[in-house]
Amino acid sequence: MSSKTLVRTGILFILLFAACEDNIIQRAASDYFQYREGNWWQLASTQDTMMVEVEAVDTLLQIECFTVSFGGYPKYLLKKPNAISQYIKIIHNFGGEDYTVVEDFIKRIELPLVNGNAWQDSLVDSIFISGAWIKAKFYTIGSISGFESVGGYGDVYTIALKNVEIVILPDTVITDTIDVIEAYAPDIGLVRFEDNDGVFDLINYEVE
């Protein structure tokens, strides 16, 4: 085989490869969760805008975590190699005094992101207040519903999350369910957020 033939074969091979849209290395090697202080993402729906900002590191349950403000509502998130965990605290007010029933970190998103993966995690605890048991449960069900190549962003994963909070009192059960859909782009972060208030798409961001 002459060196000319080798070079031609190499060029042809690279051209053929370039024609195939496959970003497996991007999905495997990139960071989809850019939680660093000062990073922000501005998202907009048809009626409203929402800022997502990473604020100063906080310490909860002796663990350092990021305060991420979603439109003014803080979420305390902890990034580990195997999951993004969220701090959950369920408080029951009785006789004008707050009692903590559940307090811990729950797995919010399992890492690394792989298409089709599904996970769930739950926190359950109870407290005895004034002769009655108050029980609380928080659980998350998550799944990666797919990924698509979006121009300028790369391969974007779409994650469906269902958060359910249940408080069982002696005479009643209070249930609060929140369904959200979030989309994350490699080395950018959140590019789409969808909940009961509408669909928010990224319009501006700054990540370091």
């Binding site: 490869f17 496959d22 970003n23 497996i24 999905r27 792989v114 599904a118």
Partner: peptide, 13 residues
């Protein structure tokens, strides 16, 4: 790549 029963595959150089 494999996580539990979920898989992804592709090609690279």
């Amino acid at each position: 790549r494999k996580l539990g029963s979920s898989k992804e595959s592709g090609y690279g150089l």
